[in-house]
Amino acid sequence: MATVIQIPLQIRFGDIDSYGHVNNVVYLQYLEDARVQLFHTPLGTAAGPGAGAADSFEDLVGAELFTLVGRHEIEYLVPLVFRPEPVFVNIWVTRLGGSSFDFGYTVAERDGSVIYAQASSGIVVVSRATGRPVRLSATQRHALETWLGEDVHFRRRQTAAVSAAPLGAKA
């Protein structure tokens, strides 16, 4: 079973829009906050050969590489209003590629009784020197595999084929 990491986040009054709920773009900030916290959390049992329990995923990436977001998909399910209690971002890995991986998320109550949004992000490991993708190391892959779980099942995902023609081109 995958380890889902649960990150508490406090809703700020400034997160609320004129409709009285958390603005849609703020959810992307919540996802970013959860990713950054996860990347900087000691690996503990997710540490494999070449890493120590006190190392973080950010330590495994090192100074020569960095991670970029290549894609986001988010589905808003229930409006989230201001409250003094934190909301929780659950984060896990849904896919591992050669130089990339995907995170799945829910923004929810601690016990999962209400899910306000679900999302997915595609992350790419990139060389600072070349700006090109770099293959995941065995140590990085081991940590990510520890967090591997199911894909996000979007309720309203469009399944219709999208034309490959550029905008404005005649089909």
Results as ranks from 00 to 15, higher is better:
A143V: 06
I7L: 03
A169F: 00
L80G: 10
G104N: 06
Q10R: 07
V22R: 00
S100M: 08
A34C: 08
A129I: 03
D17L: 06
F82R: 10
D151C: 12
P79Q: 13
L28I: 01
L28N: 06
R155K: 15
R35T: 04
L80T: 08
D15W: 03
H21K: 02
S120W: 10
S99C: 12
R155P: 05
Q29F: 02
V134Y: 10
D111F: 08
E75R: 08
R95A: 15
Y27W: 00
A129C: 07
P84E: 09
V107I: 15
Q6P: 00
Q140I: 04
H72V: 09
G48Q: 02
R141E: 08
K170P: 02
V61R: 08
S113F: 11
V4M: 02
A2D: 03
E73D: 13
D33R: 04
S113E: 10
D151H: 13
V22G: 05
A169G: 00
V69G: 11
A171T: 01
A63M: 08
E109Q: 10
A165N: 00
Y19K: 02
A160Y: 04
V81E: 12
V125Y: 04
V125I: 15
A119N: 13
F39H: 05
E73R: 05
R12Y: 01
V22K: 00
E58K: 02
T94E: 13
Q37M: 10
E75Y: 08
V69K: 11
P8V: 00
S100V: 12
L80D: 08
G50V: 11
R155W: 05
S99H: 06
G131C: 11
Y105L: 15
Q140D: 08
L144S: 11
R132H: 10
E32F: 11
I115V: 15
L28T: 04
V78C: 13
G48D: 01
P133I: 01
V61C: 09
R156T: 07
S127M: 09
T41Q: 00
A171I: 01
Q37E: 10
Y19S: 07
D17H: 04
E85K: 06
I74Q: 03
N23S: 12
Y105N: 12
A2R: 09
L136Y: 06
L60D: 04
A143G: 09
V61K: 09
S99Q: 06
Y19C: 07
S99K: 07
R141C: 07
R71K: 11
E145Q: 13
V152Y: 08
L77D: 11
H40P: 05
L65C: 15
A143E: 05
Y105S: 15
E58H: 09
I7K: 01
S100C: 10
T3E: 11
Y30V: 02
Y105D: 09
P84G: 08
T94C: 15
L144P: 07
L65Y: 05
